[in-house]
């Protein structure tokens, strides 16, 4: 009788232990699986990669759309009505620098948009088109240069032999 009770106790403890082991195995598999999803290349364990590639996400996000002296720091665009519409539609493929260095009237900014839509996978801008074109014409209009400009911004220096 006592023997059989001991045996039962033993079985009970045994099945509990198996349950714990099985749960632990599932937990480990789960953790490894989740890790694989996050880092399929196991780069965390690859000691050859330098530790210095720190990506400091929160700090970047704090300053993400910072304006300084009337300039949207991340893109260099002038802060004016329509700024974020321009940022969101015009800097996905190319840099803002390509926009900022150009000076065009409404007709030619529109022609540039049409060309991008026809050949460069730019989407239909819908009601944003007017906002974008107005922003561009207002802040980046053409200036008269004539047939040849005066030399500007000359940095004078003493020429030694």
């Amino acid at each position: 009788m006592g023997d059989s009770k001991n045996k039962k106790e033993h079985l009970k403890f045994g099945s509990q232990r198996i349950l714990i082991i099985v749960s632990a195995v599932f937990l480990i598999i789960g953790v490894i699986g989740i890790y694989f999803m996050a880092d399929p290349n196991l780069s965390f364990f690859n000691s050859e990669k330098p530790d210095t590639e720190i990506v400091d996400v929160p700090k970047e996000e704090d300053d993400f759309d910072k304006i300084e002296n009337g300039i949207h720091v991340r893109t260099g665009f002038v802060e004016a009505e329509g700024l974020m519409t321009v940022v969101n539609n015009c800097t996905n493929c190319h840099s803002a620098k390509l926009v900022i260095q150009n000076r065009m009237n409404k007709e030619r900014w529109l022609a540039a948009i049409r060309w991008m839509q026809e050949t460069q996978n730019l989407w239909d801008l819908g009601p944003n088109e007017d906002i974008i074109v107005n922003y561009l014409v207002t802040n980046y209009p053409p200036s008269k240069k004539g047939r040849r400009e005066t030399l500007a911004n000359v940095e004078w220096y003493e020429l030694k032999d």
Partner: peptide
Amino acid sequence: VKKAVLSSMASAIGIDIVFGTTMPDG
């Protein structure tokens, strides 16, 4: 996503993954 997964990993394991945020992005 990486951070979110790491924190769920951390709670599953019960400790913080100390260098998790400096994981190189391959």
